[in-house]
């Protein structure tokens, strides 16, 4: 495996870590199985691509993409809370709807960004540093938030909803906030990815949820989730390991078209190993 492949895997892994964080927040802190990643991630990419191609700077395009994708998360939360639709079904419905919205935003199935000034340069090392800074800017305030009174209440919603209600905690407000945050992270990942690739394709979100979920599970299998620090480290570590595993598989001669099968197999293997560990 070449150093270029490792660095490229690191770059992709850091973006995947943002998605894994987005999956972890509702899943682990709100006990909410949110499947909107498949819709919110390309929505972030689409908004960012259209904003950049219309002359906006990255500094404007990225927050705009995050807000739009965050709204998708809020819609999922509202469908779940107000219409009493199962959380997974709400996510699937929103992701399906987002596909059409993305096509409307882009006006065509793909947008090239080769002539637009993006956030990233040709140097992978610089790009990695930049993504680390973006990741830190998002996750350090979140880690601090979890250690405040509000963060404690946020975590209580997922851990014991009945107790949270007894303590006067608004389940609705915290669920909406958590899903906005998750959606915004998906949007951030999508907007960074289109700037790295220099194009946006309508199909970039297909299967992204499985990649993120597999990353989270691998991370939790490595460091566990018994403490807050471990829980926060799991998506980052898992995404980096997972991406390198894909790199190794490719360098060993696996066809890129077989990667989705490989991803699913890894996810199943981790689930099996975790169950086995629990039973012993």
């Amino acid at each position: 495996m070449s150093i270029d492949l490792i660095l490229s895997g690191l770059q992709q892994g850091l973006i995947l870590a943002i998605i894994a964080f987005g999956i972890m927040i509702p899943f682990r802190f709100l006990d909410f199985a949110d499947l909107t990643a498949d819709g919110a991630y390309p929505l972030g990419g689409a908004v960012c691509a259209v904003a950049l191609s219309s002359g906006m700077s990255s500094a404007t395009a990225i927050p705009l993409a995050m807000i739009c994708a965050g709204i998708v998360g809020v819609c999922t939360a509202l469908i779940y809370l107000k219409l009493r639709v199962n959380s997974m079904l709400a996510g699937i419905i929103l992701s399906t709807m987002a596909y059409s919205v993305n096509l409307r935003i882009m006006g065509k199935p793909n947008v090239a960004l080769f002539d637009c000034p993006g956030l990233f340069s040709a140097s992978v090392e610089c790009n990695i540093l930049l993504i680390v800074m973006v990741l830190a800017t998002c996750m350090i305030p979140f880690a601090v938030f979890l250690r405040t009174d509000f963060g404690l209440r946020f975590r209580a919603v997922g851990l014991n909803q009945n107790l949270a209600k007894l303590q006067g905690i608004s389940i609705e407000k915290y669920t909406i906030f958590g899903l906005f945050l998750a959606g915004a992270l998906f949007g951030l990942a999508g907007s960074l990815m289109v700037q790295i690739q220099n194009y946006m394709d309508i199909g970039i979100g297909i299967g992204i949820l499985i990649h993120g979920l597999a990353s989270l599970m691998i991370g939790e299998a490595i460091v566990g989730n018994a403490t807050l620090n471990r829980q926060l480290a799991a998506p980052l570590l898992g995404a980096l390991v997972y991406q390198q595993m894909q790199g190794i598989a490719l360098s060993l001669g696996l066809a890129p078209s077989d990667l989705k099968f490989f991803t699913g197999s890894i996810a199943l293997l981790v689930i099996f190993l975790k169950k086995k560990e629990k039973n012993t």
């Binding site: 250690r147 405040t148 009174d149 963060g151 975590r155 209580a156 851990l159 303590q167």
Partner: peptide
């Protein structure tokens, strides 16, 4: 899953603040 401190703080905090618990 929360620590002893976190459980007790949660039960006492009726008006939460953006301050470390």
């Amino acid at each position: 899953a929360m620590t002893v401190l976190e459980n007790i703080v949660l039960s006492r905090t009726k008006t939460p603040r953006f301050a470390f618990y």
